[in-house]
Design a protein around this nucleic acid. Structure first.
Lengths: 228, 228
DNA sequence: GCAGATTATGTCAGCCTCTGACATTCGGCA
DNA sequence: TGCCGAATGTCAGAGGCTGACATAATCTGC
């Protein structure tokens, strides 16, 4: 059916065709699962939500759930994954004049702002993601899984930074070191944001992130006798 | 509390007395469980080792295993925990003249060297810990759990750093930032050590760590045009 | 449109992790 | 010696996750 209609929809030319019915249904199911899981998690907690509940809320079998997500963690972190991918995209487009550190900072701020400005309010929106972040932070197994995800994303960051500056990441440690520093800085900011009564919403998060970035220099400087 | 140097009966006054038979048996069981688990994990992999196997190798019930360790991860990471505690101890004893960054670096190097110089070869020794680190790095659930452990240890580091410099960690972000940077730097070093064919043994690890520390300044500096 | 090949889903059985409840045994102590 | 509390064993069960197989849907070439 879709074989002869390469550009019936708005998508311009490319290796992708119009997705068939099968593919659309899959996306739909996946989205519904995330949505249902998200709702249940926030309402009754991660541990007290069974996979069976999620699956039957979407009217699929438990087995099907596990064909979409490798485990219960994954459905909770799926929203985060989207944001992380977008950040990588932002980083790739930073101008070459910026130093690596500047590029990272600018990319993360832009990512939060862009995602925050989407007026969407359903699951998958920033507000959902922010709610989720609070939950992740106080749910040990989720936090563990999230940390692992982040470190894998870090490898991508290393790649992008190395390409940017034309370095071999196996030879030059600077991309790896900066990516690691950046990752941990972000997590500190996230933690601080979800623990403190920081201004909610993406802008509050951006503000916290900026404050942490500003402390990077002072933290590594000599002694800390005088206040920052 | 570094349970390391077994100063047998050396402590006179104090809340501790000579541990009774009951306590000794518990320690013994705990140690035996770690030892058995460690052996099985390295021989047949983490995922392919069941808790039942570990328990029956020590002749206790599965239920008893779970009274010693909250989950399967924990028994695998128990050895790491000892090393981390010792590091904190080292950090506490660094002279005040050192800058925070210097103190962290000196403490981690000293911790590895001290633990490495113990001639012990059984489980709980550094060599076991190093073998385990390789396994952790390539076993996703273990890696996740380990990362979470590390971030909790980081909170302790924040405390120690803040006390050292007489700061309130809620006001001044520098302790949090430096602890985070330090933690991620260490993990990068660990990863590099277990991935590359780095010189084995504690000294090899120390060397890798030092290389990463040396790249901290250059990584944060402006552009990376010329090699580090 | 229609077979036939693909692919998603459902069903079922089963292993494993982890937990609560209760009985039993063992070490500590008067 | 005899009591108390702590450690362990046994049992039952919930819940996460997987392989195998059957069924139903989509996609393909004709």
């Amino acid at each position: 059916m879709a074989a002869h209609t390469p550009r019936t929809t708005g998508t311009p030319a490319g290796p992708e065709r119009a997705p068939g019915l099968r593919e659309r249904k899959k996306q739909q199911t996946r989205y519904a699962l995330i949505q249902a899981a998200h709702l249940l998690f926030l309402r009754q907690g991660f541990a007290h939500t069974t996979v069976d509940e999620i699956a039957s809320a979407v009217d699929v079998s438990q087995r099907t759930f596990f064909r979409y997500f490798a485990n219960k963690d994954e459905v909770a972190l799926a929203v985060m994954a989207v944001a992380e991918d977008y950040f990588i995209e932002c980083l790739r487009h930073r101008p070459a004049e910026e130093t690596p550190l500047q590029a990272l900072r600018a990319a993360i701020v832009k990512a939060w702002r862009d995602l925050g400005s989407e007026e969407s309010a359903g699951p998958g929106s920033i507000h959902s993601a922010l709610e989720l972040m609070r939950m992740i932070e106080e749910t040990p197994p989720l936090l563990a899984a999230q940390l692992r995800r982040v470190t894998e994303q870090e490898r991508l960051v290393v790649q992008v930074l190395a390409e940017r500056e034309g370095l071999d990441p196996a030879e030059d440690l600077r991309p790896a070191v900066l990516a690691a520093v950046f990752g941990s800085l972000l997590r500190s900011a996230h933690l601080s944001w979800s623990a403190e009564h920081a201004p909610a919403g993406p802008e509050g998060m951006v503000a916290v992130i900026e404050r942490y970035f500003d402390q990077l220099g002072p933290a590594l400087a000599g002694h800390w006798r005088s206040p920052a």
